[in-house]
Design a protein around this nucleic acid. Structure first.
Lengths: 157, 157
DNA sequence: TCCGAATCGTAAACCTGGTTGTCGAACATG
DNA sequence: CATGTTCGACAACCAGGTTTACGATTCGGA
């Protein structure tokens, strides 16, 4: 099968990146409007990964697929911003539990609402079936472990 | 229209990011195999933006949507790696032309080939029509200026 | 023609989000 | 009880971006 010169391969990653950044930028702008101007684009995913039950820096790193040191630094920033808090683990003095503060819960909840609204906006433009197809297709070509689906907590845990 | 709890909105950006990073990681791995191990994921886009005719740091920044300083630093690195070279503009002593070296051309060409192959792989899995639909849909929901389409050189210039 | 304004490249300082290496403290196990 | 592993933290570093500033050069209008 010949390569279509009208659809060079590098368009695909560019469009994926553009779609991602469009969503993130829109989310960011809306969250700033709703009282969370200091919430950086990636912080929502971090809060998502911390989850309602809390976690540790090492566990967070595993869920996000980054080193525990990087996770720890991100936790530092979110603690400074008031979205997370650290607490000692009574059963293991080495561990420090990382939990969301009320402000963290608020930010995460608002993120989820805004993301749903943005997805709805796409569905209004494209049709709900095409958005769903887009999700299904991306899932099909993406390694399953990309989201650490094996780790409970990411989705409807 | 109610929000489908099985398709939370935050899945969409996550899947877009996963798709992007999957493509970039695969490209990167293949380029390393083909003699360009030091080519970082974003460098391909930079070479693409420099184009066959060359450009300047400021022009590059405009095409990439970043500051001229950031563009200049990226050029520094690619010059150090042997992909780009700087030359004086005979008509304007302020400007420094940025051009691809033969190695730069080679890297860019191989990037394009690999991206085409990766797109073909997606088409084998999903069907060519769904890949095309994916591209069309993303184009429809992405601000047109995201790619600096107004600036000649990005596409088939 | 000359002088002020705009442009180009570069530098410095800083931020975010990562990395690797190291290390002490605390746990787990033979 | 000695050894090995795990956890969190610290340091040094890197890539990629920002804003601010500035010297050199070019442009354009009085």
């Amino acid at each position: 099968m010949a390569t279509d010169p009208d659809r060079p391969g590098f368009l695909l990653p560019l469009l994926l990146l553009a779609g991602f950044r469009t969503l993130i930028d829109d989310l960011h702008a809306e969250l700033a409007r709703q009282g969370h101007p200091e919430l950086r684009p990636l912080h929502g995913f971090v809060l998502q990964a911390v989850g309602a039950g809390g976690t540790t820096a090492t566990g967070l790193g595993q869920r996000l697929g980054i080193s525990k040191q990087a996770a720890g630094k991100t936790v530092d920033r979110l603690v400074a911003l008031g979205y997370l808090e650290r607490a000692d683990d009574p059963h293991d003095a080495r561990r420090k539990l990382v939990r969301m503060t009320p402000r963290g819960h608020d930010g995460l909840h608002r993120s989820a609402v805004v993301f749903d609204q943005l997805r709805q906006r796409w569905a209004d433009t494209l049709g709900a079936d095409r958005v769903a197809a887009l999700e299904d297709d991306l899932r099909a070509v993406t390694p399953a472990n990309w989201f650490r689906l094996d780790v409970p907590g990411w989705f409807g845990g």
